[in-house]
Design a protein around this nucleic acid. Structure first.
Lengths: 242, 242
DNA sequence: CTTCTGGATCGAACGGTGTTCGTATATGGC
DNA sequence: GCCATATACGAACACCGTTCGATCCAGAAG
């Protein structure tokens, strides 16, 4: 921890082109990404703008472009920084399904902890060092499990899509919403479904209650179960065909 | 087809507050959604702005807000308009898995045909009349197949997420990119993976080729297979537990 | 037929956005 | 000590969603 920095002294009398010349040469990719991640953590991607990053660094937005190609690249750098928190275990061939599920779940948890950052990797695949590390770890688990190469290729693709979109979807609930508020919203939707004309929407009206019942954790478990069981089933089929 | 409309006559001499008084009262939700969809089809969601919709209707952006709450609502209306193209078949209990897969695939195709419109339903669930109709149809198929209610609730959730995110992901390739360009890009990524240090990334380096090999159609088939097989497996498990 | 009124219309403006341009500046290599 | 070059950055451009208020006019009320 550093001591709280003193407030800025007033500028010299005769006009100041540089706000504080001592501050030069302090800008770099790393601090820019740091600040950008702070903004994302505080307000989500919507709160991230070049101007606000620049403000926090006491400079103008143009200065950032010497270190970062554009906002997209900055977001990808932030995304990879977040992935630094993910740890993928050493593969154990007897438990590959469980390991895969745990790893995906951990990935999900890390993403959700940083608001809607998952959106970044839905727009394009950000190939940063940590992304590579995580991918390497997942590949190791699948290969140790004896999953055929072709199935691995497809599974990696689909798994990353599933984790990222699940995380993104989850992140859209405002983090300060109480369980009561979310519950109230669900009840509203349920009531609406139940109120639909039963002749045109018999199934929707009948299942209104059931549709809204599953809790967050159950939905997640279901999604990862579907994913891993599906991969395992296709792995067996793939091996048989060989 | 109507005759090409004549160009606007020059305004009367003494200044014109209304560009053309005859044109009043022509604005309504439907035409606004029409124009918005045109813009999305032409340039994707990025090309959709209140100002450009207004321009095409020869008015100012403020005029739209009498018919549409905000841009989000407009996008949801466009999304539901797109879903009008989806037709879900009558359920046949013996073929529910195949029917489900076909329906999801059709939904996917319709979404992809309208650029990145799928993004709209990832941000929130747009409950429009066509969304209801499609949901009703999917529910009918799953119920006819004897899938337990709880599994249906979870499956609907996950299926819509999967279809929408697959469609969104696909839509990010610029539609005017040639197969050659996409191929070249893949080769570039493959080469990069292959060039990674084999001591730190043994699996990634070894599988570089295999990872990029699957074609679009195969990736889609895999995803929908995983989804439907996973649901079927959990449906069996759910029934047994009863 | 006139008057009233409430919704539709819409010019102007507010406060933001990403990015570029041109210029100023300070530092590393000579 | 000089200079090339990477960095810094004020200003501006071209957008964006949305709001405010004034204006207009169709249809209801009298």
């Amino acid at each position: 921890m550093m001591a709280e920095p003193l407030p800025e002294p007033p500028p010299r009398f005769g006009g100041t082109r540089r706000s504080d010349p001592r501050k030069r040469r302090t800008l770099n990719r790393e601090t820019i990404v740091d600040v950008a991640l702070e903004l994302v953590d505080a307000e989500g991607l919507e709160g991230l703008s070049m101007r606000r990053v620049a403000d926090r660094l006491e400079t103008g937005p143009a200065s950032l472009y010497a270190h970062v190609a554009n906002k997209d690249e900055l977001m990808e750098l932030v995304y990879d920084r977040v992935l630094a928190e993910v740890h993928v275990p050493e593969p154990d061939k007897r438990r590959w399904e469980e390991q895969l599920k745990d790893a995906l779940r951990q990935l999900y948890n890390v993403l959700v902890a940083h608001r809607d950052i998952a959106f970044v990797s839905m727009a394009r695949v950000p190939v940063g060092p940590n992304m590579l590390r995580v991918a390497e770890g997942l590949l190791a688990i699948l290969r140790a499990g004896g999953v055929p190469e072709r199935v691995i290729a497809l599974a990696m693709d689909y798994a990353s899509l599933a984790v990222n979109s699940l995380a993104y979807e989850e992140s859209l609930y405002p983090p300060d919403a109480t369980a009561n508020q979310i519950d109230a919203y669900y009840r509203q939707v349920t009531d609406y479904f139940a109120s639909l004309p039963a002749d045109r929407f018999p199934n929707l009206a009948a299942m209104a209650g059931a549709l809204m019942e599953p809790e967050r954790d159950e939905r997640l478990d279901f999604a990862f179960d579907v994913l891993v069981q599906g991969i395992a089933a296709l792995a067996r089929a793939g091996k048989r065909r060989k």
